[in-house]
């Protein structure tokens, strides 16, 4: 086993309860934490998971899948189809495929809850170089 350790950027936003594989795809069963401090500001009277926190969560799931820290180069497209809230969507699933070419990791991912897709993303990442 590698010594890769997943350290989420935003503390207490989510936990991965289970990771599994479906053919070439990765599946993450995730639990959102409504006590995460981001909800104090997004928004004060209406807690909604910030879109960028969802994107970061997908990036971290990809890192966990390949056991490698990543840097986003191009977010080709990210569609936010429905709002994700920690009350209505406590348990969600992240599905993704990761293809590699020329040192690039091409991630295609969705966030789903039951039958519904909430977010759909395609992005290109590279291995994170040690930052100066």
């Amino acid at each position: 086993m590698s010594d890769f350790e997943l350290i989420p950027l935003v503390k207490n936003f989510y936990t991965i309860n289970r990771q599994s594989k479906d053919g070439e795809g990765y599946i993450f069963d995730i639990e959102l934490d409504e006590k995460c401090p981001v909800y104090q500001g997004h928004f004060p009277s209406e807690p909604i998971a910030p879109g960028v926190c969802n994107i970061q969560m997908i990036k971290e799931c990809a890192e966990y899948a390949i056991q490698q820290k990543l840097q986003m180069k191009v977010l080709q497209r990210c569609r936010f189809l429905k709002l994700i809230t920690p009350q209505n969507n406590k348990n969600i699933t992240v599905r993704m495929t990761i293809n590699t070419s020329d040192e690039k990791y091409m991630v295609a991912a969705q966030i789903v809850d039951g039958e519904e897709t909430y977010l759909d993303l395609k992005g290109d990442f590279v291995a994170l170089q040690s930052v100066d």
Partner: peptide, 16 residues
């Protein structure tokens, strides 16, 4: 007003 991101397209990150 409250605003939400509906879609992000071709977002290039050159450096942090």
């Amino acid at each position: 007003p409250l605003g939400f991101i509906a879609e992000i397209k071709k977002m290039n990150i050159y450096f942090c």
